[in-house]
Design a protein around this nucleic acid. Structure first.
Lengths: 154, 154
DNA sequence: TTTAATTCCGACTAAATTACTCAGATTTAT
DNA sequence: ATAAATCTGAGTAATTTAGTCGGAATTAAA
């Protein structure tokens, strides 16, 4: 029930990208060093973000990445789903798509998983990237680091 | 970001227990066969539920398990936390408990994880076991199986 | 036209976690 | 005594996570 580093790093990376790619494309390396993430691993993640249509790339020297659309039109859910696959805590819903499960509509725990999924979905889909970027700018103006890693999973 | 079988099986098992342990203690075996869960695996899970104080046990022949308190006082969150550990999607909060993280209170993504965690917590802590048991009884009266497995993770 | 910077791509790997199994000790009703 | 149960800890195969690595393709600039 944990979000993996993909989602955690990836969201940080995308906030970083939003902050620095306004004038020109930003390369993996600079994000990686700012965010203290392994370059080659981050490359993988950004590739996924591109595949999901969240960023665009410019190849060759001086190249890099930019957001594919305004930060206000990218939700946290978009980012996490691109990186983690679907965010459902349990996939046992299916009005139609229940395979081995003969009686999915009679299963009581279904309601539980549905409710958990809904609450997660609601949370991530109502947070937009621009809000985070805004917040991040505020903190920077206060002379504080904003998108630095702050995760200490035990 | 998935709930493991521990949480999924365990909740089913506890609903089953609530349904059948009113008159007498219910043994692992009968839950296991009704719920189609491996006996020895279920044993582990119930052990955890006992450790968490959600069920009580009666040893020896004719023994088994019962709920430690009324189903109305056991939340889905209690059950899942007993089995899965904490349910936080990301543990990066800590008003005090941030270890390697120098600036946890300046980290923007913190707000995101906080909000996701809160929404999950709210969902699981407001669903009580008795509601599920009730629902389960209704379905049974309709001649339908209620707590049978209905999970088909791909 | 060479070079250096960069994205692209897929395969590989070590460590951790998950989903179990198993052997046996202990307790207790009959 | 015996059988039915709970207890307990150790072991294990499969999967997932969190990366690494080598190199091909593209492009700006010297």
């Amino acid at each position: 029930m944990k979000l993996s580093t993909k989602g955690r790093y990836g969201l940080r990376a995308l906030i970083d990208l939003a902050l620095y790619s306004e004038k020109e494309a930003v390369c993996i390396q600079s994000i990686a060093t700012r965010q203290n993430i392994s370059e080659s691993y981050l490359e993988q993640l950004v590739r996924k973000l591109k595949k999901a249509g969240l960023v665009t790339s410019v190849r060759g020297a001086g190249g890099g990445y930019r957001l594919a659309r305004p930060a206000s039109e990218i939700s946290v859910g978009d980012v996490l789903r691109a990186l983690e696959g679907d965010l459902e805590a349990v996939t046992c819903m299916g009005t139609d798509a229940h395979g081995s499960c003969g009686s999915s509509d009679q299963c009581v725990t279904k309601y539980v998983w549905q409710r958990i999924n809904d609450s997660i979905t609601d949370a991530v889909d109502t947070m937009m990237l621009d809000q985070l970027v805004e917040e991040s700018r505020k903190l920077r103006e206060q002379g504080k680091i904003s998108t630095q890693p702050c995760e200490n999973q035990e």
